[in-house]
Amino acid sequence: MSAGVEGKLDVLDPQDQARFEQLVLPHLDAAFNLSRWLMHGRADAEDVAQEAMLRAFRFFRGFHGGDARAWLLQIVRNTCYTWLEKNRSVDLTTEFNEELHPQPSVSPETLAIAGDNRERLTRALEELPVRFREVLILRELEGCSYKEIAAITSVPIGTVMSALARARQRLQRVLTQPPVQQKQAAETGGRP
């Protein structure tokens, strides 16, 4: 998949090269982490993060200051989506306007027990539709502000809060359901 980026890269002048190293490269961990959670499998995640980083390098002259991490993560996300669209029929169109399902309120204790299992938590996150997953990863792992999440995921800033609310509700539901229902939830997931 990285065939397109293996050709010669534009040569940045030393000053731009230094700026790239100073502003963008420090966010390589963030780039990989997002890619890892959007893609399935570490190998794909690594390829996509690599491609995104090279794209960022190529487009760096178009970066005129501001939040370098958000700028890079936007490129990572777009690269992931392009890859996902091309390679598998993943539903990328989840909207955040699904009906809220009335559900028994989950006690913090039940959640604590379910959430205490790293594997279960990982599985639950992986089962979420990608649109839900990305806002959770950006907020909970990357610590992005709503403004940054809006910029990275191309949603209006006004809907970030409800997107997170729905994503968290979904995660909570998947986490506290028995395995069989979990599977169903994942299958019906993402279709409003």
Binding site: D29, P108, L111, A112, G115, L136, Q172, L175
Partner: peptide, 18 residues
Amino acid sequence: AQETLHSSIQRAGLYERA
């Protein structure tokens, strides 16, 4: 519940470095 979930996610060490 949300704070519990937040703590669990933080505690689980889910962040994956390059």
